[in-house]
Amino acid sequence: MAASEIGTAHIANGSVCEDSCWALVEPLSTGQSFLSMFVSDGAGSAAKGGEGAELAIEAAAEFLTGKLRQGEFGFSDSLATELVMAVRDRIYAKAAADGLKARDFACTFLGVLSSPSGTLVFQIGDGGVVLDVGAGLEVAVTPMSGEYANMTHFVTDEDAIGVLATKVYPDPALRAAVFSDGLQRLALNMATNTPHDPFFTPFFNGLARATSEQEQQLQPLLVKFLGSAAVNERTDDDKTLALAVRPT
């Protein structure tokens, strides 16, 4: 399941939620399951940041559909680079068509691909990926910050491929979470860059125990949580959370 919810700061200034997300499990031709999760956070300083985030998710989903249609492929740094290039091409094309700069669509981009043959994590910008591949929850990639406070890297940056961080695991993800920077202070111990387990445990347990009927209720509950006073007291930013549990 996955959801994005507007932050109180955006409500106050009359803007919209500029986060976008994707989470899907689909069957492979082998009968095995393939998990894809993407999160993108539009830059508040960019005129079209929210649109850039939507374009990033759309481009990533289309790229993956094409890859899966071609058949088997390996998880690698080169696959992450291909994915990011597809996202960049979509955003740059839109910017050119609208007579704007790619920077006007600046957004972060991060996510997870996982199947029984392994797991790939990729990230440009802040936000985080927490997952368990058999040894407990871990932060796959250190969230990126820029040269100054409240700055980060974006998929639209000229050096985006150079700053792209990836991590490949030989095993499938048993539990995975991808989130935008609006949830970092709730989801991570920022001093040690480790997952705050009490934040994730209720979500993972709920997913693992849900019946097929209850699964339909989980996404609205996630939206309610993201917009709750308990969350808004800790962050005024847009917040996105995508979650998955592999059945045992």
Rank of each mutant, 00 (worst) to 15 (best):
V133K: 01
G99L: 14
L110S: 08
A173Q: 05
A135R: 14
A86E: 05
M85S: 11
M144N: 09
K167H: 11
K94H: 11
A102L: 06
S180A: 00
K101V: 04
L110G: 05
A160P: 07
M85T: 14
T194E: 14
A106P: 12
D171K: 14
A149F: 13
T166Y: 06
D157R: 13
G111D: 02
L83D: 01
T108P: 09
R90Q: 14
D197M: 04
V129M: 10
G99I: 13
A176F: 04
G136E: 14
F199R: 01
S114L: 04
M151E: 15
L137R: 08
D159G: 10
M85V: 15
S145V: 15
G125L: 00
D104I: 03
G127V: 01
F73T: 06
A93L: 11
E147Q: 15
R88D: 10
A96T: 13
D104Q: 10
D197R: 00
G128H: 14
F154N: 13
I91T: 08
A173M: 08
L137D: 07
A86N: 05
F75R: 00
A102T: 02
D181T: 03
A97I: 00
P198Q: 00
Q123N: 03
P170S: 13
G99F: 11
L174G: 11
V139N: 08
T166A: 06
E138T: 13
A97K: 05
A95V: 10
G118K: 08
A95Q: 10
P143F: 09
G182S: 07
G74C: 13
A187Q: 02
A165F: 01
E147I: 15
G71N: 06
A96W: 10
A187P: 01
K94N: 09
S114N: 00
F154E: 15
V178P: 05
D104K: 06
Y169M: 08
K167P: 03
P143S: 11
R175P: 04
L83F: 01
S117I: 13
